[in-house]
């Protein structure tokens, strides 16, 4: 079997505020990536729950330090009505200039309701422009995630697990079945040969390799994917090509 590019879609960088495990800087992250053979990573800030805008700035600084350009950034959005983030056109052009390729949101920590009233301006624009939206804040919050997806069914989005590892097919499969832009990452999805089962049922294009760093390391999920029984083509899609395609497809 050929080796393929691993492009990690679930990776947090920077220090947290509560002493949680962290990778403090770009050099440490790149060293970990090299140790396990991960080529690229989409990074969001560990401490984003404690400040969307300040940590967007820090992500920009990290990307500036990344001279080899192996990292792509994630910025956090907020409701439009308080003018904390600019209009979508401006926000997306700022993202492009900073080498930021995707957005995330943290409504439960930033204390707002994730619905059309609060987010329709920015997320309708994201859906139109196919900007990937990371759904890490909804990990394990299935009722909230279901309500959110009903509000924004056309999003290109990636559900990132960070809570459980005890298999969530009963909750994940209805989302994969009903929302064609819904994708999921592999971190914490440890079901025996389950990646292959999902790929056969919903298509390998819906699944992305994610490490869950720094809670998890890169290696366990890499070996799981390599020997999941998928074709080389499908394995390559999940390992990195899908994320590459989603990021390149975004019209920033």
């Amino acid at each position: 079997m050929k080796d393929f590019l691993f492009y990690d879609c679930n990776c947090r960088l920077g220090a947290g505020s509560a002493g949680e495990a962290c990778l403090p800087d770009v050099q440490t992250l790149v060293s970990e990536m090299d140790y396990y053979g991960v080529g690229k990573a989409l990074i969001r800030h560990t401490n984003i729950i404690k400040g969307a805008l300040t940590n967007n700035e820090r992500i920009s600084e990290f990307l500036h330090e990344d001279k080899e350009q192996r990292l792509c950034g994630v910025w956090c959005i907020l409701p439009s009505q308080c003018d904390e983030i600019p209009a979508p056109d401006v926000f997306f052009s700022q993202m492009k200039a900073a080498r930021v390729g995707a957005v995330t949101l943290s409504p439960f920590e930033h204390r707002y309701v994730p619905c059309r009233l609060t987010l329709s301006k920015i997320l309708d624009a994201a859906a139109e422009r196919k900007v990937p939206v990371l759904l890490d804040a909804f990990a394990g919050k299935w009722a909230e995630l279901y309500a959110f997806m009903k509000e924004f069914p056309r999003l290109t989005c990636i559900y990132l697990e960070s809570v459980g590892k005890w298999g969530s097919d009963r909750n994940l499969r209805p989302l994969l079945e009903n929302y064609e832009g819904f994708h999921m990452d592999t971190a914490g999805y440890w079901v025996p040969e389950g990646i292959r089962d999902l790929a056969e049922k919903y298509g390998a294009r819906r699944i992305l390799y994610g490490s869950g760093l720094p809670r998890y390391n890169h290696g366990n999920g890499m070996l799981q994917l390599r020997h999941n029984g998928l074709s080389e083509e499908d394995s390559a899609l999940i390992a990195g090509e899908n994320l590459n395609r989603l990021l390149k497809g975004a019209e920033l």
Partner: peptide, 17 residues
């Protein structure tokens, strides 16, 4: 915990420690 967790994931976790 088989059938909860994939063997390659588990072995991969030991080998990547």
């Amino acid at each position: 915990d088989m059938p909860w967790f994939d063997e390659f994931q588990g072995i991969g976790g030991v080998l990547s420690a």
